[in-house]
């Protein structure tokens, strides 16, 4: 397959099947039950996203948005089809995840940033910026279990935006920290939106998507129902 320099994300005929497990899976159940129920979260999705595009993904609950995002982030793998991703992809969706309660904020920065794909050298260069942006100066040596939820989210956000993503995944409810931090976070995101960064937003907030995204993808029952400009939003709202 040819990859073009402008290509950011290419999905070829992606499908994702989930097995529905009603209870904890155990070996005995596995053999006693005849066949697991299955559910196709995504069916034959084809998608080409170029560098710098700002994509809004809309759809009702259970339409497959989250699954699509997980596949883009590499957290799960499609049952069939190929995923091609150019560059570093960072998700702002689960900011509180991946921290270790017993380690200090400082040590968590290294661990978390490495999970996002940064090298130790890159982290060394940025660790001060990360701490400053998260506004955690005097707490950075304290173990994470002493942090409030807001502090943890601030740290998560700061690490993610300093990871220099090429592709950013986010949803609208970025409720990290107090008003002052929210302002700074929103400002940082606006900078990202102005840059040559590929951004995929998943949201139910139509106003936000209208403001931030130029291309809208409407997903329904695991398939792409519409893909285009703001007209898709009108169709989506009318259908509701």
């Amino acid at each position: 397959m040819k990859t073009y320099p402008t290509l950011a994300i290419q999905l070829n005929d992606i499908s994702k099947k989930y097995e529905i497990h009603h209870d904890k899976p155990t070996l005995v159940e596995r053999f006693s039950k005849e066949k697991n129920e299955t559910f196709w979260a995504l069916k034959n999705i084809n998608l080409t996203i170029n560098k710098g595009e700002k994509i809004g993904i809309i759809g009702s609950n259970g339409s497959g948005k989250t699954t699509l995002l997980k596949i883009l982030a590499g957290i799960t793998t499609p049952t069939s089809g190929d995923v091609h991703i150019q560059g570093r992809i960072v998700s702002l969706i689960d900011l509180g995840a991946g921290f270790h309660a017993d380690l200090s904020g400082y040590q968590n920065i290294y661990l978390n940033a490495m999970l996002l794909g940064l090298s130790r050298k890159e982290i060394n260069e940025r660790v001060q910026q990360i701490i400053t942006f998260a506004d955690l100066k005097q707490f950075i040596d304290a173990p994470l279990f002493t942090y409030s939820n807001g502090m943890m989210l601030r740290l998560g956000f700061s690490i993610a935006v300093h990871a220099q993503p090429d592709i950013l995944l986010l949803d609208e409810n970025l409720s990290a920290g107090d008003n002052a931090f929210q302002k700074r976070a929103a400002e940082r995101l606006r900078v990202f939106f102005r840059k040559e960064l590929t951004i995929v937003v998943v949201s139910h907030n139509i106003a936000y998507i209208r403001k931030m995204c130029s291309r809208i993808i409407w997903i329904d029952k695991g398939s792409v129902l519409a893909d285009g400009n703001h007209q898709v939003l009108h169709k989506y709202l009318k259908r509701k």
Binding site: A73, G74, A97, G98, L115, L116
Partner: peptide, 9 residues
């Protein structure tokens, strides 16, 4: 599991 759900690594 929270690491697995965080990112691709």
């Amino acid at each position: 599991r929270s690491l697995v759900k965080k990112a691709m690594f």
